[in-house]
Design a protein around this nucleic acid. Sequence first.
DNA 1: CCCGACCATAAAATCGATATTCTAAGTTTT
DNA 2: AAAACTTAGAATATCGATTTTATGGTCGGG
Lengths: 249, 249
Amino acid sequence: MKSARAAVLPPEPAGSQVEAAYWRLRQEIICGNLAPSAKLRIDLLRQSYGFGASALREALSRLVSDGLAEAEAQRGYWVAPISREELNDITMARQSVEVEALRQAIRFGTLEWESGIVAASHSLERVETSMVKPTPETVAGWEHANRQFHMALIAGCPSRWLLRFTASLYDQWQRYRHRTVLRRAIPRRGLSADHKELIRLTLAREADAACAALSRHIEDTARKAEAAIFESIPIKAGPNSARRKSGKA
Amino acid sequence: MKSARAAVLPPEPAGSQVEAAYWRLRQEIICGNLAPSAKLRIDLLRQSYGFGASALREALSRLVSDGLAEAEAQRGYWVAPISREELNDITMARQSVEVEALRQAIRFGTLEWESGIVAASHSLERVETSMVKPTPETVAGWEHANRQFHMALIAGCPSRWLLRFTASLYDQWQRYRHRTVLRRAIPRRGLSADHKELIRLTLAREADAACAALSRHIEDTARKAEAAIFESIPIKAGPNSARRKSGKA
DNA sequence: CCCGACCATAAAATCGATATTCTAAGTTTT
DNA sequence: AAAACTTAGAATATCGATTTTATGGTCGGG
């Protein structure tokens, strides 16, 4: 039981303080505990999470490179803002990059790749089936399983750069979707028709159809998130989200 | 005269020590002064460039995110290695991402975008015309102008993410091409037929033809670099390029 | 003679303290 | 009254010293 649990929890490879700080902050940003556009004050984070100042600076640096945070010299760090425009941008970019990665995966993928898809979809199905109510823990497990599934789909792509970009975009996307997961109704039990079809077409190596299905899937989920975030009840924007729009000097 | 010069020199926005260190190291890696796979020892860099240890660590962190360096916890930093495989990967990824960016630029580009292309191609032509012999300075100017030109081509693309990925890949590519520029014959005077055609098709908004031309251009230049680097005289690999291939613990 | 554990050296990671820069409130001047 | 200057406060950036961890050679045992 315990090992089965561990497998669905998000990994936090803490080989060093910096890594630990990086993964922690990353998680906090993605799941919204650190709200978009919030100021990230070093000494405050220091006492909140118990990391050293240097480690935090280094972690924040990496988050800036990932596009999860922003920095201005001598002014400090902020959580990257979110907006309808950027959600659309992320969606469009995924439709370019992730779909191309899938195409190449279908073209070059090995048996090992196919097995990975089957394994990941099994995990995802199991998690979805056992998730009766969305709590922070089950949601974290589901998000991890879903990420693993999407990565498994394209893992057969031989281009390490496309894979890297895809992962980067997926993390960005998760920031948006996370805000919609907690409020949505109890999820269906088992994989969605979307996913099943995507798996079938991919394993059948029907590239065009599979790519179209993935593109549609990306579009649909993004539209739902867009509606949930920007058109229904606006979630607390946070009082500390003041950010100079600033023309630079 | 001086201002005209300044315009073609690569920018090094040194708003802070960390930024300065970052841009300096980045330049040294791209132009090969810091050889691929070379160990990056903090205290050594410290006395070589005169930056503080913390600033260097932070800069190195960012370079890792950019894929220009690698890190292993408790073991330090290395310059990212180069290989024929990765060159092919970068090339393929550019053909996916950069070409898609061009397609969107052609579709959505404004008048300002067109002007940017004309301006950048003018700069590039001027630099190429005035470059009688490849010296480190003129090469740096030419590489900057060439980069500006490629970025100008796709600047009309509305997706900030695609632009970011393209820039990232272009930097990677520059590492490879730089090793071929110094040894090649005296360049033609003025823009290549390749570039002229690419500009013409782009400004005429003939998307398919322009994308095909760009894809071919990327492929051709990559092939030339591949031949120059991996099939002719192997450049000094550097005695300090020893790197554990290492299975991780 | 070979293998494994131990110790000395060197490098990297972390922490705390100092200096610099920015922000904002209060004051003065026009 | 409005604008600009001054000054106190806070946050960031930088540097040096300490702690922790890896590495390579050596000694002792099998």
